[in-house]
């Protein structure tokens, strides 16, 4: 088993463990929010882990040296890299608008303050990450 596949399996297992912890371990009323987070993140991790593991099995069965080389070229192709970067940047930009609108909608709907603050926190996280990566790349490039 390749190292990559072990990581995928570990991710799936960690996801399963989080779901179990959220569903069966954190049952008290006061732990409801944490339990929800655990189940949500656990489900995402489990699905990604299983999906990537299955994908790696399918690919490695058919993978030859030539196929692997072509795949590497496609992944590292500078135009494809630039397309991915541009698409990522645009997606992040529009997701920001979506998130802003979502917070306004939550406010108009009279949602609980912790929900609005959590959503606003996501924007703060995005801003912090933006500053961090801008700083990182300005030093690196």
């Amino acid at each position: 088993m390749k190292r990559r596949q072990v990581w995928f399996l570990l991710l799936a297992l960690a996801g399963g463990a989080l779901i179990a912890a959220g569903g069966f371990g954190l049952t008290a009323e006061s732990q409801k929010t944490i339990s929800g987070f655990c189940i949500g993140i656990g489900a995402a991790a489990a699905v990604l882990g299983v999906g990537w593991f299955a994908d790696s099995l399918l690919v490695s069965a058919a993978e030859t040296e030539e196929v692997r080389r072509i795949k590497q070229i496609e992944v590292n192709d500078e135009r494809n890299v630039r397309i991915r970067e541009k698409a990522g940047a645009k997606t992040a930009k529009y997701m920001n608008y979506v998130l802003d609108s979502f917070i306004i909608v939550l406010g108009v709907m009279g949602a609980a303050p912790y929900l609005i603050l959590t959503a606003a926190g996501l924007i703060a996280v995005e801003l912090i990450l933006f500053v961090y990566f801008s700083n990182y790349y300005s030093k690196k490039m």
């Binding site: 070229i73 496609e74 590292n76 192709d77 500078e78 135009r79 494809n80």
Partner: peptide, 26 residues
Amino acid sequence: LADVLEVSRQTIGSLENGRYNPSILL
């Protein structure tokens, strides 16, 4: 050409059409 330069065929097509400007390395 794409095979030699280790880029995708689409990159060569885009370069030829002038839709894409290559990096200095390419």
